[in-house]
Design a protein around this nucleic acid. Structure first.
Length: 840
RNA sequence: GCCAAAGUGGCGGAAUGGUAGACGCGCUGGUCUCAAAAACCAGUGGUCCUUAACAGACCGUGUGGGUUCGACUCCCACCUUUGGCACCA
């Protein structure tokens, strides 16, 4: 073949892509592979025009790591799929006016074509799409397993509602009152919904974060989201104006308040319950008609507010007095009970005890309602006077005051004493409060897995028999969301909508909501290795336990930090649940992703890429213009992989130049020339450097090291064939196409295995040892000379400092000075030496 | 407000407590060309000294202190930026 001066990427890429696919070089034997390594990347959702450069960034880094591990002797399994079921894909279909099922076919073709172009070593036989009945059959199965263990339950609740997406959302999917998906303001709706009881796993989800090798940031985000706090639930009897207890039937009413600070309880001057609190109704029934009217008016107003309205009101405190009092049994004070929307129904017990002296919100409320303020902690400046301004914070240390038997104690002692006191009296019990709430699964949408439940008028809610799975999503013409709180499936044909009750055989109606898309993605990584097993195609359960044991947990999970509290939390929950039920064989392995690498975000001109800004970079153009290898190198060279970077067109040309230079050097004759020592030594150093860098996802410095090698090579000589092969292997994980081309050209005639099945080069340390030793000479810590010493020579401290003193420049700086001290570090081939003269 | 991370040339960034700015982009000059692009070669932190060159001096990693023979790196305080959580009791 005639040598081409430049790397002409298009035909080469095509050639090797086809060959790799034909030879299935990236397809490990799932049953019998030795040293299995599950290299997983978060699968994309195909909602827009196609893969954008951010996806390519994510997949390239992950793939380099996978290729590196393969060359390190592992059988790497690197599957890919599409998260194409759910609200994001459906919203895109609505936008372009196409049926989601039709659009899915188009997106699928487009994504798989792009994904095959980016040069990843995917195991194509194991791809999956979450919208295929074959897949969502098992999503529905998972729902039923939860239901069978009472971890899926139905409850009418005030839930987040997105008026634009026309569906309810989980708490995790609402960020600051804004829909995570479409960025509209969310409101609330009272609807019967299916929940997964993820809170039952809160403690394990929190505690088992500890052993994870994850980015600190993501671990912290999960801890904060779970938000466990130790405190006490204090029970206050409810009394009327005259101080007599109020009864509901035979039961005496009480209000329970959660607090982390029972030490301040002598400073309590009111109790506030949220507008959705169940006591609201009970109290309203006991008070005068006028008060009842006030209460009802306020509750209606408060419930209608959106989260955003509450914020824009400037957090002004509003509220209404109930006419009832809570009895503080510590001092027999009757403290008034108010209803206010600054207390959230889902937090703690939905009721708080107001201590206005030591909490800003309580203080504001007390000011508004003219309630007394009592100081119970001495100020940090020793202030013991009455609190009159908003200046106070919740002190974390200080001495108690005005608090009877707590007086003089430090806060922490007081908390403990108060806890003990309440427990002893039976007035309260220690509890943990969590920020985490149960996972809302229902969605009033079309494009999702139908929830596999039926409602029988006689037998109530029943799970569909597992043999009937999948419950297929019916083809609907009128599939768009209505916004009336019922899903589009409510308009499905009668034959779909009505079925037999699995218990009594009578007529029963199917659930018409579909599953949250995060349920689809909570277990996809468990599915990939099973796609060829009889279990997957059977009816019992989807997992072949032998294969699961071999390949899971996932060895390396690579993805973005945007899923810190969504997907990653749900997946951990599902894994723990399935293991507990022995549906997965991992009782001894508490986590699905022991190692997670969070890659950074690619931005464009300092801004996040988005269609509305019009700055989305589509990779195809760059791939065809500069080649996949150049694009991969460019993206990885932007900076540390966990930091992302700003995409600029000019940088990619530098990568093309680098590849062209390397091409010329590889093509240079004669190939049998001995490689010179300096170049050979540089090669060995590069091998060590690239090896370590790739192992730690430091792709930018690995590429820089290869560039240095090429610069030295170009400046200083020729390289023999076996050394060239070494360079090509170093390049292989980063630029797989060009590496394959040159491996095949250099490896000789006959059938040659792919470079991607070769082992990673090993450095010959002897060659590095032949290099000159470097010694840096300083005077008072300032660099004055560098020495290059022959490698064989032996230097002890005194001969080394004597040698250093001989240097002209050093001598000049030592002239007329007395050496107080000399610091000497011996040079080694891997590390420079040092002589530092400390003079007066 | 709470928690976390980060501040280095014109830009992206590199540096187990030991030559700060590797590598790349950009820029400047040159080669090639009718010309341009591309490519290739050389230079490129700042200030100063020297007619100039060779060379040399001082300053320099957000700010101010500290530890050390020696600090981008470790410690303390502050400033700034980014990310997460947030009327969370």
């Amino acid at each position: 073949m005639a040598e081409i001066g430049k790397y002409d990427h298009a035909p080469i890429e095509r050639k090797w892509r086809e060959w790799w696919a034909k030879e299935k070089i990236y397809q490990p034997s799932l049953k019998s592979a030795a040293k299995p390594f599950y290299n997983l990347m978060m699968f994309p959702y195909p909602s827009a025009e196609g893969l954008h450069v951010g996806n390519v960034y994510a997949f390239t880094g992950a793939d380099i790591y996978g290729r590196y591990m393969r060359m390190k002797g592992f059988n790497v399994f690197e599957p890919i799929g599409l998260d194409g079921f759910g609200i994001h894909s459906e919203n895109y279909a609505i936008k372009i006016g196409k049926h989601p099922k039709e659009q899915a076919k188009v997106s699928e073709a487009r994504f798989y074509e792009q994904l095959s172009n980016i040069g990843n070593g995917f195991a194509w036989d194991n791809r999956l799409e979450t919208y295929h009945p074959e897949y969502y059959k098992w999503t529905q199965w998972l729902f039923i397993q939860m239901f069978k263990r009472s971890l899926a339950y139905r409850k009418t609740a005030r839930v987040n509602w997105c008026p634009s997406c026309k569906t309810v959302l989980a708490d995790e999917q609402v960020v600051g009152g804004i829909c995570e998906r479409c960025k509209s303001q969310t409101t609330f709706k009272e609807l019967p919904q299916w929940f997964f009881k993820i809170t039952a796993y809160a403690d394990r989800l929190l505690e088992e974060i500890e052993g994870l090798k994850w980015p600190k940031k993501i671990k912290t985000a999960q801890r904060q989201w779970i938000g466990r706090k130790a405190g006490i639930n204090i029970h206050y009897p409810i009394v009327n104006e005259q101080g007599t207890r109020i009864n509901e039937g035979r039961q005496e009413l009480e209000v329970v308040c959660f607090t982390t600070r029972p030490d301040t309880n002598f400073g309590a001057t009111f109790v506030v319950i949220g507008p959705e609190h169940q006591l609201v109704g009970e109290i309203a029934a006991k008070v005068s008609p006028r008060e009842r009217k006030e209460i009802e008016k306020y509750v209606v107003q408060a419930m209608a507010k959106t989260e955003n309205e509450r914020i824009t009101e400037g957090r002004a405190k509003t509220g209404v007095f109930t006419g009832c009092y809570a009895l503080n049994r510590l001092n027999d004070y009757r403290i008034p009970i108010y209803i206010s929307d600054f207390v959230l129904g889902q937090v703690g017990t939905g009721a708080v005890v107001g201590v206005p002296g030591h909490d800003l919100r309580d203080f504001q409320f007390a000011q508004e309602k003219k309630l007394p303020v009592i100081r119970v902690v001495v100020g940090s400046d020793g202030d013991k006077s009455a609190i009159t301004k908003e200046s106070q914070v919740q002190e974390k240390e200080g001495q108690m005051i005005n608090s009877d038997f707590l007086n003089g104690l430090e806060i922490n002692e007081a908390i403990e004493k108060m806890m003990v006191h309440h427990e002893a009296k039976g007035w309260g019990e220690r509890v943990f409060n969590y920020h985490l709430r149960d996972w809302l699964i229902s969605r009033q949408r079309y494009w999702g897995a139908p929830i596999p439940m039926v409602e029988c008028p006689k037998c109530g809610w029943q799970a569909v028999p597992e043999v009937e799975l999948p419950i297929r999503l019916p083809d609907l013409v009128d599939w768009q969301p209505k916004g009336d709180g019922r899903g589009p499936l409510d308009n499905a044909p009668e034959e779909w909508l009505y079925t037999k009750c699995p218990v009594c055989g009578g007529k029963a109606k199917r659930e018409t909501d579909v599953c949250d898309t995060f349920l689809d993605s909570s277990w996809y990584f468990l599915a990939y290795p099973n796609l060829q097993t009889p279990e997957w195609h059977g009816q019992e359960q989807p997992f072949n336990l032998e294969i699961m044991k071999k390949w899971l947990p996932v060895d390396a999970y690579i993805g973005g930090a945007e899923h810190a509290v969504l997907h990653l939390l749900y997946s951990r929950f599902v894994w723990k649940f399935l293991s507990d039920q022995e549906l997965l064989p991992f009782k001894d392995k508490p986590e699905p992703f022991p190692f997670l690498y969070g890659h950074g975000l690619i931005i464009k001109e300092g801004a996040k890429m988005s269609k509305s800004r019009g700055n989305v970079v589509i990779p195809d153009e760059y791939m065809s213009r500069y080649g996949v290898d150049a694009l991969r190198l460019y993206l990885m060279f932007l900076g540390p992989y966990d930091q992302g970077g700003d995409f600029k067109d000019t940088g990619i040309r530098g990568m093309k130049r680098f590849l062209d230079r390397l091409w010329q050097l590889l093509a240079a004759e004669p190939e049998e020339t001995e490689t010179n020592e300096a170049l050979n030594s540089k090669l060995m150093e590069t091998i060590i450097k690239v090896d370590q860098d790739l192992a730690h996802f430091r792709f930018n410095t690995a590429i820089a090291a290869l560039m240095e090698l090429v610069n030295v090579w170009k400046a200083s000589g020729k390289m023999g064939r076996s050394e060239k092969l070494g360079v090509v292997k170093l390049l292989a994980p980063l630029a797989p196409f060009m590496a394959e081309e040159w491996y095949q050209r250099l490896a000789g005639s006959g059938r040659v295995e792919s470079v991607h099945r070769q082992s990673f080069p090993q450095a010959d340390e002897q060659i590095i040892k032949a290099k000159d030793l470097v010694v840096v000479v300083q005077v008072n810590g300032k660099l004055r000379a560098t020495l290059a010493l022959p490698p064989q020579s032996q230097w002890d401290e005194s001969s080394l400092s004597a040698r250093a003193k001989e240097e002209v420049k050093v001598r000049r700086w030592l002239e007329g000075k007395t050496i107080q001290r000399t610091v000497v570090i011996q040079p080694t081939p891997k590390r420079q030496g040092l002589v530092n003269f400390v003079v007066d």
